[in-house]
Nucleic acid binder design. Structure first.
Lengths: 195, 195, 195, 195
DNA sequence: CATGAATGAGATTTCATTCAT
DNA sequence: AATGAATGAAATCTCATTCAT
């Protein structure tokens, strides 16, 4: 039960870190601000995480795990359906997570290309892998053309990101996840007029 | 001729800043490192740019202008061709620029999601606009389906970004610009098998 | 009791600032030197005062308040006496304070004539006011001729300052406060021989 | 004739320095600002004065010489008159100079107590001496009581300074020099009512 | 364990001075 | 001799981290 409490505090700090990051940015977010958001003193943060980098890494890991779990859930739940439905379910799960943890996604692309990109790239590996699983299914089932299949994961993730950034400009609308059908359709059928 | 010199120095500092940013990251890049890369003393940097923020803003502006010019060139040069060719030319120009100025593109997504995204968003407005022009042509000519046309610019930019990040993982290949045909095809025809 | 500590530290830093200012001058006094004099690290100084200007302003305010309190004390304690006695008490209090906080008085005249004089002038307003109160009493009681009464505060303060600077040249003597009787006499009776 | 030109330039730089000092303060006045006020480049200033300290010292010396000359003139011209007239003439000359070269007088009391006060004190020696000459005459002629005669120079200078600072507050009036008669009267007869 | 004041290395910025043109 | 861009030492300020309470 002590462990329960420790874990709850740790989670609160991670949430505070995410919030602070979202508000002030990866670089500008100071440890004191994170602690204040969590309602604890700086020293307490250091009782849970060795240093700033560890805290950020832990946040990254926690959010990645959540995202991977969501994607795995989507992959499993839709396994029996047609590929288009699977894809839409998967993309909806992805977009919903991006929307809920915008700060996490900001982190994934931020940081120094040298260090953080290595970070982020490594961190994304597992996510990337789920997209590859999905694409593999599509190709195997004949639903996807194998021609440029090695690019599909990157293109799908990129389009999701494109939609995310678009949300910053057009400040209305039904939210990111509602774009999943359109995204699915454009990816499968293309934007070109059928001749 | 003195102005020539001043401008050349300013450009050299901007290039050095981009290089340093690429090597060390937006936050880690110190003014001294930038100055050293440019082959001048710190004080000299401050003779050209009021402070760190101004230098970064100037770099942002300079690269954006270069990119917009490249996109305008692509839009103009391919105007007479079929839309697919226009699209490919445009995407190739975009990808080539991203490749040449990776540091610039790293900057566009870095920083605080709140502020810098506003920044980046504002900074990208002109770029976004060129994608809209292109998409507008496609819809007008009947080459693009108007269904989700409002999402196309975001999706195209996103896919380019997806490919860019992919370059960080697969460290071989013919470079980003060579992906333009594949990207064009996937965007126009979709990844789905033709039934 | 924590607040007690904080206040004591703040006072220690102010004292250290005054000392450092006295030793090295308004411009030459570095924040590190002030911190060292106070026996703390630079960062600690910044935990108490936002920046250099704030620290100096706080010192100014603290010393002014002390001086004003001393003058108010003198005004109150001597209220019942004859004007000459009141004047002497008042001047003695003033001179004693100037002597004790020479650094403070150095500050009052230092800085940019434009801005800092505005500063100093504003800062001195309260002090000036006490002299005006005193002069007002003198005029009201008939002890002072009203002819040039509007100049008296300035003349009295000026004479005190003159004596202060004189201390820098003649380095002996019983201290500034001991000049109060002479100053009182000259001001009241003049230096001219009685015809 | 070349020397004439050199001297004229040097004087222009000194004037510019005084002006800049008056506007921005002793510490804040940068060499570039001084050069700009003089209409020359920084390098040129260094062709005339070895460094910043030399320039300030030269300004000090120049202004002091002017003041001393004016005081000597007043002492000589009024030698035959009654002491009260001599005093008024002298004070008027002093106040006029202070008014014309406010920046110079700001310098005299400014600076680090350590260095600049030494400076200023030394610089004032000659001026102080003229006040002593005047007071000596007054005592010798029986016009001044000898009681606190050693304080009179300091008191007179102080009163002048008090009036100068007063000018900063009351921003109207006929100028500093017009206060000479009042100052003379108060100093000779005192502010006390004649019983 | 929690606290938050103290720490000090390190970053940004200024500006007197130099020197090639 | 005049110029003004370049220089870099030195000052201010920040903030991750420590540790006594």
């Amino acid at each position: 039960m002590k462990d329960r409490f420790r874990e709850a505090t740790a989670r609160a700090i991670l949430d505070a870190a995410e919030k602070t990051l979202a508000e002030e940015g990866l670089q500008a977010a100071r440890m004191e601000a994170i602690a204040a958001h969590a309602g604890v003193a700086v020293g307490t943060v250091y009782n849970y995480f060795a240093d700033r980098a560890s805290l950020l890494a832990a946040l990254l890991a926690a959010r990645r795990e959540g995202l991977v779990a969501a994607l795995d859930g989507a992959l499993a739940s839709a396994e029996a359906e047609a590929f288009a439905a699977q894809l839409e379910t998967f993309l909806r799960a992805f977009l919903a997570h991006v929307e809920a943890h915008r700060a996490f996604f900001a982190m994934l692309v931020e940081g120094d290309p040298g260090k953080a990109h290595g970070h982020a790239t490594g961190a994304l590996d597992a996510v990337y892998g789920r997209f590859e699983v999905l694409v593999g299914r599509g190709v195997a089932s004949g639903a996807l053309r194998p021609a440029h299949a090695e690019l599909y994961p990157a293109l799908l993730i990129g389009m999701c990101r494109g939609l995310t950034l678009r949300e910053f400009r057009v400040r209305r609308g039904a939210g990111l996840a509602s774009k999943a059908p359109a995204l699915t359709q454009v990816f499968l059928d293309g934007a070109g007029a059928t001749k």
